[in-house]
Structure formats: C-alpha cells, structure tokens
Design a protein around this nucleic acid. Sequence first.
DNA 1: GCCAAGGGTTGATCCAGATCAAGAAACCGC
DNA 2: GCGGTTTCTTGATCTGGATCAACCCTTGGC
Lengths: 243, 243
Amino acid sequence: MTIARSTRQSADRGPAARSGEHDGNRGIRLDLRRRQRIVFKEEAPDQLYRVERGCITLDAVLPDDRRQVLLVLYPGDLISRSASPPVPGIGLTAAVASTLTRLPGETIDTAADGVTEMLRLHAAVAQLSARSTLHAMAIGRLTSEERVATLLTEIALFCGRAIQGSYSFEMPLSRDDMADYLALNPDTLSRLMSRLRARKLIAMPTRNRAIVRDLDALMALTPLAKAVLALRGSVERGATAAG
Amino acid sequence: MTIARSTRQSADRGPAARSGEHDGNRGIRLDLRRRQRIVFKEEAPDQLYRVERGCITLDAVLPDDRRQVLLVLYPGDLISRSASPPVPGIGLTAAVASTLTRLPGETIDTAADGVTEMLRLHAAVAQLSARSTLHAMAIGRLTSEERVATLLTEIALFCGRAIQGSYSFEMPLSRDDMADYLALNPDTLSRLMSRLRARKLIAMPTRNRAIVRDLDALMALTPLAKAVLALRGSVERGATAAG
DNA sequence: GCCAAGGGTTGATCCAGATCAAGAAACCGC
DNA sequence: GCGGTTTCTTGATCTGGATCAACCCTTGGC
C-alpha cells in the first residue's frame, strides 16, 4: 500500500558495500539497502539482473497508489525488463538488504555468450513465467487463507532451514509487502497470521523471524502446495545442472 | 467454472483437419476443435507449441473445480510446460477451433537449432512472462470494470480489425472463459458487459462477434491500457524482427 | 530511560462482487 | 420451422474481505 521510497544509492554505505563495482567480466555488483529501488525505464537498454543475496520484489504502482507485488525473487533468480510488463513505475524493490549482479552486455542478446549459457537463461525465464502464472492462480482463485498458506510455504521452502521438523527463517517481506503480493489488505493479512499463530502452525519469536512449526498442516491448507514444492525442486536442479 | 470437457481427438474431423501431420521439419501440426485440450503431463518431455490460428487458453482447475485461465494465447505465441506452473491438470484449451504446431525435438534444448532461433525463443518466453505478470496485476489490483476493460482492449488489439474507428472482431472467449481469466464470476461479468453495451462503448451484433465502438473511452477505463498497447506493439515487432 | 516513529494488531462497519434462482436468447440438429 | 440444449442475462440476497479508526508493540536515537 505504501509506495516504496526511492532512496538514493550513495553516501554513507557500510564498508562491506561496494556497489557498482565490476566483478571481473561477470557483471556489475549492486548492493541495495532495504526499500531501495531499481526502476525499469522504457528508454533504457534491456538489462539482465541476477539476485545474489537477499530478497527482491518485482512490483508496480498504479497512478492511484494501488501497489501490486508481481513476483518475489530469491537468490539465483534472473529478471529483465523485457520479461516484465511495460507499466510505468515498474521495477525491483529490495525487500531486505540484497545484492544484485547486473550481467554484462548492452542488451540481453549479447549477454549469453554460448549456447549452454543461453539454455540456462531460457530455463530461468521459463521458470519465472511458471511462478508468475502460479501466482495469478493464487490471487485469482484462492481464498485469503489459502493465499497466505501458499506464500508461507513458498518462503519456508525458499528461505527456510529445516530444524527438527520446523522451518525457521528470516521473514524477508514486511506485512505490507506480503499483502501487496497476495492482493490482500494488510489488516486482513494480519488477522490471518494471528489465526495461524493461534493454531500453532507458525510462530514469530521476533518481528522478522518466523518458524513454520507444522509444514504439512500448512501445506494442507492450500491446493497449490505441491506446485510450490515442485517449483522449488526445479530451482535446485537448475542451480546444478542448468535444466 | 465449468470444467472443459476433454473431447477425444479422432473420428469425424472435417476434410480440412489434418491433425498430427508432419509439416516438413517445421514441427507437427495439430488441429484442435473448440474445447479440445492438451494436458501437460509431468512425466512427458517438455514440448514447445506455437499457436498458428485461433485462440488458446492456458488454464488449470483446482480439485474443487475452481478454474483459472492463466493466459490467453494468440497466433504467434509460444508456450511450453516448463513455462507453466506444475499444477495437476494444467494444460491448453482451445477457446475456439485452433491450430497448433508442436515444434520438433524431444526437448526444448534441441528445438532451437541456432542462436538466432534461440533469441527468438527467449524473446517469446520473456514476453509471455510479461503478459502473465501484467495479468497478475489486473486480477490483483483492478476493479471488475477495469479488468473487463483491460481484456476487451487486449482482444480488440490482438484480434480486431479497425474499421472506421471501430474495432470489429470474432470474440474468441466464451463468457465463462472471460470470467475465469478475469477471476470474476460469470454473472458479474455479464452485468458489466451489459453496462458497457448500454453506454455504447461496445456492441455485440451476434453472440460471437463484438465491436468496440469507442476504443479510447474503453482504454480510459483501465490504468493498464497503455501497457496492453505496448505489449501488442512488441508482438508485432517480434513477428518481423525476432526481438 | 524516554520519546518518537514506523509497524503490526484488532474491533466495528461497509460494500463490491459472489451466489442463488429464474428466465430469455441464441444456436444446433433434424 | 421446431424442440432441445447451451449460453447468457438479470433480479434478490448474502458474505468475505476492505475500510476506518484506535491502540499497542517494537526499535532506534539521544
């Protein structure tokens, strides 16, 4: 709901942040602070970005401030402007402090320097398309509770660490981010989270840390759980074998 | 809402239908009757399809019959299982009688036989991803009237023929298809269409023919009109210059 | 430790769109 | 043309989630 403020990228960065630096010929590294944005401009060349660390949302804001998070991107994901809808103000927002690599080459056409590389690229874009349509399914046809369960399943599987049956993770998205992703309003979402907490399916020891206590029960709440799991699997395969 | 019945593909086809025939080395031609489905099966190899004629929906049905049309595909579009979410029962449905080409090669990896071809493929998948996320934006954040206006704009631009200011076209989608695409219920959609008719923005001389009388007014109803127009433009460019 | 600001929660009320139900057109095979 | 079927329309009613508003909790600056 709130428009992400577009903070300048400069000034007092910590010593670890070396944004904008060339990393050999493997692209330019960009360190983003929380809420920092990269806006896709129509006239700019079509750049390809890879998420290295953190969590990035692809989002757009309508003239009247209605915001929709279109995709949540995790480390390893590739995104470009050409794979995003041409709406004004569309771009990437760091949900938490994150690192991106802007891949070399003026345009996508020259970014991939071999057939193998290109296949990997194709697979990544195809997977993103799959996630996007799954997301459309979720916001189009799931009840609010089912949507929340789907997102929590996704985050647990993409960001979580299994510890004795539970999945513990840093919650990368704020309540508003989650609401904007699920096309719910933050108040409704808060109620739903409270309900899941009351039912002991999840716990939140601090504001940014979440534990999924019973992943099976959570997954039983949404008809899309299996699909999320399968997509997660294909990411892992993609990371090793480019397919 | 209604489950598309999966009619067998055989028996009394018209003389023009020569489905399954090899078309040189350019793939296998598939003629689909209205409502005929191609189900993406997990275990099958990842095939690439091109829409040649007609209109195809990518859709999935939840166990309790909630159906969501994830994408509407027009001639020239490319789609594969790997670019679709891995939900059971996902597949392609012919909204009207259509022709598909199943591109040669066991898997996508070998379908593209050159870098140029591959770029074209990449561009097509990227564009589909863009359309999908735009769709998520529409069903996530637009009111029902805005959604209808967006879809009508899209169909007018993708299927319509401009005749003295109006756009006339065969309506490829049934009311139920439209409703499933827009995540609305068919009754609500019918009311909205009646309202647009009453306002003279559109006219429907027969059930399957529609005329957009005032495209500008229609586009003024939705904040995504410009984006749809831009995507349409990129299709046209893609058709001639591969990217 | 205190204060301010940003997030998150929760209750009360409201409304857009869903659901239910009954017809009315359009289309199809004969 | 005619019956049967599918598709579409429209009215009456209902409800899930939005909206509004107040409050509370956490965090961070000093």
